[in-house]
Computed example of a mutant assay.
Amino acid sequence: MTWPEFLSYDLLRGLHIIAVIAWMSGMMYLPRLYAYHTETAPPGSEFDAHFQVWEQKLLRIIINPSMTITWLLGVTLILWHVYAAGQGWAFLGQPWILLKLAVVIFLSGWHGFLAGARKKLAAGQRPKSAKFWRATNELPFLAAVVAVLAVTLQFWAR
């Protein structure tokens, strides 16, 4: 199998990083919206309806598409390592890539949790406090730091 020339590693990696930035930005902003929504907008109020629109648009227009693009480009980068770089599938067993994949799975789960929370808020439920949302809105950033350092330093790969 030959690798298409226009799909250079640098292009794929750059597009992947851009998609990750958009995904993380949205996932750091959404919990902040939830905090404000929880503490300032009683269920059924006009302000509640505004928050619901903002949260839904953030998920539908920014977070969901950027996660999809991140995953597609990430899988493409894996295939690049396997085929174009000739590393084969064994590189997936290296600690740095396992750590990165664990972070991606965590972030995808957190994304799902945030999407589920939006539905609960839209239904008038407030299962988490504003304090919870403020305390957790930096989780995507911290996870991204781990993933970026794992890839750029390639821990234990040498």
Score class of each variant (00 low, 15 high):
51 F>I: 03
107 L>E: 01
68 T>F: 09
118 R>S: 09
70 T>P: 11
51 F>S: 06
68 T>G: 14
35 A>P: 11
149 L>H: 06
48 D>H: 11
82 V>W: 09
125 Q>P: 08
17 I>A: 04
24 M>G: 01
22 A>L: 07
26 G>R: 12
145 V>F: 09
27 M>Y: 03
138 E>L: 14
110 W>M: 15
57 K>W: 05
71 W>N: 09
35 A>D: 02
129 S>L: 10
71 W>V: 15
35 A>F: 04
125 Q>K: 11
34 Y>S: 06
63 I>T: 08
96 W>M: 06
94 Q>G: 05
157 A>K: 12
99 L>A: 15
88 G>P: 11
135 A>N: 15
46 E>Y: 10
137 N>A: 10
147 A>T: 01
52 Q>W: 04
118 R>D: 04
88 G>R: 06
123 A>S: 00
100 K>P: 01
121 L>I: 02
31 P>K: 01
56 Q>K: 15
22 A>I: 05
78 I>V: 15
146 V>I: 15
144 A>C: 08
37 H>L: 02
149 L>S: 07
60 R>C: 02
130 A>G: 13
99 L>M: 14
48 D>N: 00
77 L>V: 03
75 V>D: 04
15 L>A: 07
145 V>C: 08
36 Y>W: 08
43 P>S: 04
150 A>H: 03
31 P>C: 05
131 K>A: 15
83 Y>I: 14
71 W>Q: 01
17 I>P: 05
110 W>Y: 14
133 W>N: 10
107 L>K: 03
157 A>N: 10
79 L>N: 08
99 L>G: 14
42 P>Q: 03
62 I>H: 04
89 W>D: 06
28 M>K: 02
12 L>N: 05
144 A>K: 06
14 G>C: 00
26 G>F: 10
105 I>Q: 09
126 R>K: 12
